[in-house]
Design a protein around this nucleic acid. Sequence first.
DNA 1: TGGACGATCCCCT
DNA 2: GGGGATCGTCCAT
Length: 196
Amino acid sequence: VKLPRSFYLRSALHVAPDLLGRILVKRSTRLLLRGRIVEVEAYLPGDPASHAFRGRTARNDVMFWEGGHLYVYFTYGMHFCANVVTGSEGKGSAVLIRAVEPLEGIDLMRRNRSRGDLPARDLCNGPAKLCQAFGIGRTENGTDLCGPAIWIDEGDPPARHLIARSSRIGIRTGTEHRWRFYIKDSHFITPGKPSR
DNA sequence: TGGACGATCCCCT
DNA sequence: GGGGATCGTCCAT
């Protein structure tokens, strides 16, 4: 069952942990790519680490759309990362999907990653890796997650005691906040280290 | 108009 | 554990 619009119209701090255990789905040409979300980060209004911190621009425009859209950004001259926009129109808040556990379409994911030899655990254990594996790029920016192309299924959320949190990864500011959430016993989370 | 800087990844030692 | 790849974006000059 596809998560409804109302799921996304909440604070990113509520949506982020609630996304764990949900299933990211992308309809490819004739098959489905599916992955269980195991690691996310919240980016809030007024958050200096957020792309939206310095106001609305052409690049981050989608982040200010109504919750339930996909904000895809390009970084380091070669990578894409995907976020779930949260809250009402104009909020400028989102949840970065950092890692998913591959469930379906794994052969295609391997081909998309240009590596036939990668173990499943290394296909989507990073925000740019999962975008490459799922074929998410510039054209997917602004996709409505309540539409037919990319969506998130209810899945099977973990018990609360299986959810861990830490500071976020790869940022220089806002490191005092523990806004990274992940499934404690998952083998499919990022190898990178939190910022503090 | 230019330059510093990424919400990263991969390969090297 | 460290550095290079690679380029769009933003802000300061």
